[in-house]
Design a protein around this nucleic acid. Structure first.
Lengths: 335, 335
DNA sequence: TAAATATGTGGGAACGGTCTCACATGAAGA
DNA sequence: TCTTCATGTGAGACCGTTCCCACATATTTA
């Protein structure tokens, strides 16, 4: 049925051991035999069976990416999708194949599946519950977390310097003269939103212009719709408060808020300056384009995979990853 | 080392055949033995080894998604990413795992890899060259193409009714009074752009208002940047021609063109009405939101996988998929 | 010249499952 | 009572590789 090493061996008049040696390049083979076998492989389009290979080597050279989500699939998510892309690229360059799965929060189904498929390692993106980590750790598969909702002791975690990013926003906005700044903060259940807010607040307090709780709106999801809706319902408060700038802890929220304001013919940045966070593709495309803090998603994906690879290869002295350095990108929404 | 069926059998005091029977539910097993084995499996957290299973069943229950790209990874692409998401969902519900790979045009590296991994089937997204198809077909693996750059004889192809969509745009724009319509057409190398343009032109000609070649701009890529750039370089021509509407054969181009016009303080839709195609998420978020033709990407992904599953299961009488029905979504950019 | 080493090859166990077959036993049908 | 059949179990081949080991032969080294 399937074209096997045995068939090649038969045609070449040698044993399968010899063919195996030619393919792997390990051990001795005469030039004569090598040429013959290689030619046969080319001719018959023989592809080694990675399944059988995994069976004996106990390594599949496959990894799994688990993306946790609340309600919707997010492989196409403007932020997480970028990270995924980088993982895909890096993995391919190191000859790994990648299973991509999304799962409901708390569900172990995907994780289960990946265990059965005997992936060499896992990358966990976004929110991740303790039970999932326990489950995976229990199974003994190496894993790396990317931009998780919380830090977990002993878990390798690739994250951005979110607190520093929040500080940068505050520094920039005050530098260009803003004092009355309104904030829409993403879900408190997520680490990055909390740290961004923290960095921002701390700097402002340090400047002698602390942000009162009343100027901070708590978003329940970090979506465009939520940003739009919160801006709509609080516009009167915003206007009355004499605010000149808005900081949203991610771009999606910022963009949603902007959309509402533009519909009300509020001029950005003249009446309201807006700063987001993430630098998703759409931030630059929006009109006006959005000033934001760029999170190096490509580096996140690359680092996550490289780290996982080290873990898989059981390299010695693996260091905890350094937090990624964010960068302020000034665009039309503030100047 | 690994927890195997043999170990379970040992502890339960039965043979591995019996354990296998309990797990698969095939054949007879006494209630007593069944309970004991099941309890042991639960207790020891035994996960059947899908690799070994694939070895004997000659079915991996894995499929591969190949996304071809020109220059950049596109798992995070606003259009293809949506299709990918739908595939991921559908596949998961049918207990398949999905390898996602992107590759350079013409490269067979990813395809090769998928063959070695012995995927049960392949889904090919976007552009796809004859050589890749030949290569895969030669290997005898079932495959389905989604929104490919060209139709290929005998290849199952999930596509949108692009020509009909183009017609809908023309009908709508003429209905609301536009006669002087400017067009930016995406790359001629892609089937969908050609058909969208064709449907549009045919309707206009039928209305006695044919579109002269001079009002059709040929884009070399279907990107935001290209839309922006083409609009910038041809704005004078546009203005002088007395055009009142713009049709771009996809949303990204349309959005790019809009971005330029908004920067020039051109009012949309009062001065220029704009219609795109695809209905990517950003279309609704942009300000003004974009009137467009919705392509049912979710259905595309779902159909693609369902079809592939039928092919894999060698179901009888598999019909060629029906083209998906597009829908006009009217938004702020035209009214 | 004998022993050690380099070079080349094949046999067969192992990886962790599935599945066919043979073989029990007990109950039902002739 | 003898056959038939449903129920329950275990032995062992097999899937396509890798890799260890045994065994040649040729080439060095002592």
């Amino acid at each position: 049925m399937e074209l096997t090493i045995k068939e090649i061996a038969l045609r070449a008049g040698v044993s399968k051991s010899t063919v195996s040696r030619v393919i792997s390049g390990k051990g001795y083979t005469s030039l004569e035999v090598r040429d013959k076998v290689l030619q046969l492989i080319e001719e018959l389009q023989y592809k080694p069976n990675a399944v059988a290979r995994a069976m004996v080597s106990q390594r599949t050279h496959n990894i799994g990416v688990l993306i946790y989500r609340r309600h919707h699939p997010i492989a196409s998510h403007p932020f997480y999708g970028k990270i995924l892309d980088a993982i895909l690229m890096t993995a391919a360059s190191l000859n790994y194949s990648v299973f991509v799965t999304t799962d409901h929060e708390m569900s172990l189904r995907s994780a289960d599946f990946m265990m059965e498929k005997r992936v060499d390692g896992l990358i966990l993106i976004s929110r991740l519950q303790q039970n999932v980590i326990d489950y995976i750790a229990n199974f003994g598969v190496p894993y790396v977390m990317v931009n998780g909702s919380t830090d977990v002791d002993g878990v390798m975690h690739i994250v951005n310097q979110d607190e520093e990013g929040g500080r940068m926003v505050a520094e920039y906005l005050t530098d260009v003269g803003h004092r009355q700044i309104f904030v829409i903060a993403g879900p408190q259940t997520h680490r990055s939103h909390n740290l961004r807010l923290k960095g921002f607040k701390n700097y402002m307090a340090g400047m002698g212009a602390p942000i009162p709780t009343s100027s901070i709106l708590q978003a329940s999801t970090s979506t465009f719709g939520e940003g739009y809706e919160l801006m709509r319902s609080h516009w009167e408060q915003f206007r009355a408060g004499g605010f000149t700038a808005l900081f949203a802890t991610n771009d999606m929220i910022a963009l949603g808020a902007m959309k509402f304001m533009l519909e009300q013919s509020i001029r950005i940045p003249e009446q309201v300056a807006v700063v987001g966070f993430d630098d998703i593709d759409f931030a630059a495309m929006f009109s006006p384009s959005l000033t934001t803090i760029r999170v190096n998603t490509e580096e996140m994906g690359t680092q996550a995979f490289s780290l996982l690879d080290k873990l898989i290869r059981q390299e010695a002295n693996i260091e905890n990853p350094k937090q990624l350095v964010p960068r302020l990108i000034v665009r039309q929404s503030t100047e």
